[in-house]
């Protein structure tokens, strides 16, 4: 049973075990998006689990006209934002970058870690409309069409936003990397 609508109908009819198929199919896409938002592996795993349990409980509200990921993605974003708002001890990226700079280790490892933090920081600084398409494109691995469906915007707008986001990221990364290189 691979068809998403059939799977969801079966789950709603009481065949709970089929939900595992959806979890396996989408968990890492949801997880990567959440992980990028909360910057913590353990928190992201826990939140991903919460998102799928909550989605199961609300499955009767799901509109099968849309892709399951489009629906669960919104639940994931809302859950992650709520988590970030509630977690006052959230460590800002600047601090992470500082900690990585001061930690001992080989030069190569140092550069790699610093650059990772810089990419995160550059994405974090984007406007929400740009950040969303970047997260869906690179962290959730969605196509233009899937991003358009998820965000309920035309595919042309997705391409336009993605281009703008890439150009902004290019500027931000090139400025930051000057200090590293």
């Amino acid at each position: 049973m691979k068809d998403e609508k059939t799977i969801i109908k079966a789950i709603i009819a009481g065949k709970t075990a089929y939900y595992g198929v959806l979890v396996e199919r989408y968990q890492n896409q949801v997880f990567r998006v959440i992980c990028n938002m909360v910057n913590n592996y353990e928190d992201a795993v826990e939140l991903t689990q919460d998102v799928f349990v909550k989605a199961y409980e609300s499955l009767h509200q799901y509109n099968p006209e849309f892709k399951f990921f489009s629906w669960i993605y919104r639940i994931a974003i809302n859950r992650a934002l709520l988590f970030i708002r509630n977690k006052k001890t959230y460590v800002p990226l600047e601090k992470i970058a500082f900690q990585k700079e001061t930690s001992p280790g080989p030069d190569k490892e140092y550069d790699l870690k610093t650059r990772d933090a810089m990419v995160e920081k550059a994405i974090e600084s984007l406007k929400e409309m740009y950040k969303t398409v970047v997260l869906l494109k690179y962290y959730a691995g969605l196509s233009y069409e899937e991003i358009a469906e998820t965000l309920e915007i035309p595919e042309k707008t997705v391409k336009s936003r993605l281009f703008d986001a890439r150009m902004l990221l290019k500027d931000k990364l090139s400025k930051n990397l000057q200090y590293v290189d």
Binding site: V23, F31, T48
Partner: peptide, 9 residues
């Protein structure tokens, strides 16, 4: 990558 299928189910 991670797998939460077991815990979710």
């Amino acid at each position: 990558a991670m797998d939460v299928t077991g815990s979710v189910m």
